[in-house]
Design a protein around this nucleic acid. Sequence first.
DNA 1: GATGAATGAGGTTTCATTCAT
DNA 2: GATGAATGAAACCTCATTCAT
Lengths: 198, 198, 198, 198
Amino acid sequence: MPIRPPEHHDQRRAQILSAALTCFSRDGFHGASMSDIIAEAGVSAGTVYRYFPSKAELTIAAAQSVFMPARNQFSHFTSAAPPARPTAAIAHVFEELVTRADAGPLRMTPLILEVWAEATRDDGLRTPLTEVYDGIRGDIRTLVARWQDAGHLAADADVDALTSALAALMPGLLVARTVEGRADAGDALIAFGEATGL
Amino acid sequence: MPIRPPEHHDQRRAQILSAALTCFSRDGFHGASMSDIIAEAGVSAGTVYRYFPSKAELTIAAAQSVFMPARNQFSHFTSAAPPARPTAAIAHVFEELVTRADAGPLRMTPLILEVWAEATRDDGLRTPLTEVYDGIRGDIRTLVARWQDAGHLAADADVDALTSALAALMPGLLVARTVEGRADAGDALIAFGEATGL
Amino acid sequence: MPIRPPEHHDQRRAQILSAALTCFSRDGFHGASMSDIIAEAGVSAGTVYRYFPSKAELTIAAAQSVFMPARNQFSHFTSAAPPARPTAAIAHVFEELVTRADAGPLRMTPLILEVWAEATRDDGLRTPLTEVYDGIRGDIRTLVARWQDAGHLAADADVDALTSALAALMPGLLVARTVEGRADAGDALIAFGEATGL
Amino acid sequence: MPIRPPEHHDQRRAQILSAALTCFSRDGFHGASMSDIIAEAGVSAGTVYRYFPSKAELTIAAAQSVFMPARNQFSHFTSAAPPARPTAAIAHVFEELVTRADAGPLRMTPLILEVWAEATRDDGLRTPLTEVYDGIRGDIRTLVARWQDAGHLAADADVDALTSALAALMPGLLVARTVEGRADAGDALIAFGEATGL
DNA sequence: GATGAATGAGGTTTCATTCAT
DNA sequence: GATGAATGAAACCTCATTCAT
């Protein structure tokens, strides 16, 4: 006989996770303290720890909610009917992602860089991140293979190697945008695709 | 009349910076404490603070010594005589850099990701980093322009857009290598160059 | 008109007390948290607090159930017909008690030491404990007096002083057994009694 | 080149340990918080942790300083020339110890019970405690053997069993004194010695 | 120049207890 | 009666930094 409605738990969890994202995006995983998050969430310390057993777990949950959209976005795109030009697809998804990530008061894109850095040291973070990136890579490979099948690439092109290079473009453009402040990524990529036929 | 020879100061500074790099590469900027660095350097706390006024300054110095090699490496390459294929140049510099960065007992490449994340929040870090990356970008643009002059690219190709895409490759491949463990950067770039004519 | 049968209350109380003993014997009074006990009992926090108003009360109840058996065991023994050799009686009761206390999955004897330590600070614990020990002391005094009446001790022996020394043996042997792991207490006491005539 | 005189470290350590003993004897190992000890010592938290790496280590050090005197006291006594009556020796040492332990504003004897309880769960405490008690036991055995050699005990007496019983007296009397408030240990042991010839 | 003991604010986490449901 | 989510004070411990020696 549950005392609260069954959705209460998920709401609370979302409320706390949202507060954590706010603080993390503002101050980074290390710069944001549990006290900050607790205050932002407007609940007590004990409540936060009821939903997330440690700061590490909260960090992982926050990280997941940062990089999961990339996976979904790509899946959605790959399943679309006409074979898209790979660079155009990447440019489109990239724009979509960064626009959404930095919409509203929160700037989430810096958090992605934070996640990369943490993931090199924290298996709890690296494992799910690697899975997501493997999925995206698979999607990109599909795009490249279709583009080859459609006759736009040489029949003996090294699909895997091309996939690796194309997959590197999104993180690379993200660094350019977030660290250097370059906002021309999408345009550059489209021009690049048109110039190279990729 | 200085009691110590003037090079003493530089040696001490290098000794402390080296200890900081050791600790930072092992535990990250936040995970490494000043105590760790002090112990690693084998000097006293006071001495560290004589050479670096705060952990933030030490972090900046460590970060600089991490991303400065990229600048030098590129400069050196660009000034070489025959116009190189841009993708090949990037592949060469990338391999050179990551090989050196992770040679010896230290793994410095994760620190680069750390620097990106910090730079989004810390102007003291972002400013010099942006300068370095602007320089590298200029070098890449030179490579592309020369490649165009040599007749390998259409005369009306958008050199800036091509430069943006190529400049994104190095950080992107670094993420793939450091986070996901992919070591296929060389192959990827060669295939990419063949497919794109770059 | 009670909805629940009256024995329901006692059963619940016993269930919670049993869970508390399990946790206390495993982790000590301080090491066991109310959460541990609540989980072990399989009831809600509110229910535990309905039956025991605080952890202190639960501790007292648990302590009582630990040292009450000693009282009962001695009473039973003293009322037996033939005058027993006091050391033999103490050895017998001691063996009986520690065997039962550490039978099953629970090791209760360490809890007795815990009770002593708590009792020095907590009147709620010391009062009932002192009453029990006074009772045991009275039983031992009866044994000594009978042994004297039976002609085994000098007529002018200081019965109270002898009682004090004999009463000290049980706690002393318990310390030897629980802290140092000596299990030879019973044998030692019997040999001791035979050698000294006590 | 030490900045402070070499004895400074030992003084500070003693100062902190003394504060810890004050708090522990007042509130017990669990009841005393590190904050209490820090305030009592009149130093900062960091300083306490410079000398004792954790509360557990401070607890062990405090415990050691509680039970080490018993070892020294006994050693001193055993090495005295004329063969003493074992019960008299134990009575003497016991009185000496409890008098000193509870002299001044601190009541240390309850801490001994606390140490026993902790030692059943904490190896860091049990190991040194067992060594001390083994030493004391050896001393008592020496006393018994000498008493036997002096012709006061039958030649075939079970020295080990007698030792076990006698060794149990001190902890037992301590419980009686500390928990129940009985102060008749001296009388009890003299009567016990007269009745048993020990 | 160099030392390293000292600082103390602030970090994460736990816990006995309550009370709306 | 029973539930269990929520509380928030307080626990232990760390760390960048300073300054008397």
